[in-house]
């Protein structure tokens, strides 16, 4: 089974979010002094892919995991981490530094980058920890004309296709059958993530990491269909009012407030 895993490098979970005023008066997020890491749901997608590959190898079948990202030069470190954990090769569609692409532009770039690839399965995380649109996987599937399913917790080979467990709301689950190739977006926390071994980190150096320029795929930030209208820190909308006076005065004032708010008759 040949599996492609789409990864995104996002600001580390404990990185502070700070905004700077942009030249057009709109705020942008400051990213310079932030450390980056593999998007957590994507890490679970990679883990799921590596387990599927290992199961294939155990059955004496062939198995390959290739990882793909659309991102700036720094994203190469995340690809190396994926190679160190056991991916076989990586494809980096490099974006110009500072360029912000929306889910649609990323999906178009990924679809173009995968043009010459044969694969049985594409896995992505269900959403990114930074923007959280949960769109890239679905848009990529539509661009490639693939069947897709979201929030997947379990993947089993089934009669030449796949049988997958999907999380619904309210603690309910759904089992689906899909043909191959297909695209699945993976839920976080479904398995225990592995660590890269020191030997794996050393061996990753010798694994292929191909680079493609975004512009060579005919995609640019101008391909975005989504425009950010405004970026702002959450504003405090609730206020606490302290009542002063003697206990009797405070009780009377409180009773009056509660009546005003129709919380008591």
């Amino acid at each position: 089974m040949k599996i492609i895993v789409c990864l995104k490098q996002v600001p580390a979970k404990d990185a502070p979010l700070r905004l700077a005023a942009g030249s057009d008066g709109r705020a942008t997020a400051i990213r310079e002094d932030v450390s980056f890491e593999m998007n957590e749901p994507d890490a679970y997608a990679l883990e799921a892919a590596l387990r599927l590959k290992e199961a294939c190898l155990a059955r004496q079948e062939s198995g390959e995991v290739a990882v793909l990202t659309v991102g700036p030069a720094r994203a190469a470190q995340m690809l190396r981490e994926a190679l160190a954990k056991g991916a076989d090769r990586a494809l980096h569609i490099e974006t110009p530094s500072g360029a912000e692409l929306d889910s649609h532009a990323i999906a178009v770039a990924m679809a173009a980058g995968l043009q010459s690839e044969n694969f049985d399965l594409i896995l992505t995380g269900l959403q990114s920890d930074d923007a959280g649109y949960a769109q890239t996987g679905l848009l990529l599937a539509e661009n490639l004309g693939l069947p897709h399913a979201t929030i997947i917790m379990k993947i089993e080979p089934h009669a030449g296709g796949l049988r997958v467990k999907r999380e619904l709301e309210g603690g309910r689950f759904q089992w689906l059958e899909l043909p191959r190739p297909a695209l699945l977006t993976i839920q976080s926390g479904i398995d225990k993530l592995r660590y890269a071994t020191l030997l794996g980190i050393k061996q990753a150096k010798n694994k292929p990491l191909a680079r493609l320029e975004l512009s060579a795929l005919g995609v640019s930030p101008g391909s975005n269909r989504l425009a950010v209208a405004r970026l702002a820190m959450p504003e405090k909308t609730k206020a606490t009012e302290m009542l002063a006076g003697t206990p009797a005065e405070m009780a009377a004032a409180l009773a009056q407030k509660l009546r005003q708010l129709h919380l008591v008759p």
Binding site: D14, S35, A76, Q77, R80, E81, A84, Y195, A196, L198, I201, K202, A204, K205
Partner: peptide, 25 residues
């Protein structure tokens, strides 16, 4: 308390990708 890295002198910029990966891992 969650540990936060201590790097006042930009030490990370003196490390290559593999070294950072080994450390973070």
């Amino acid at each position: 308390l969650k540990f936060r890295d201590v790097d006042l002198v930009g030490l990370a910029s003196l490390l290559n990708d593999d070294e950072r990966l080994v450390r973070d891992n």
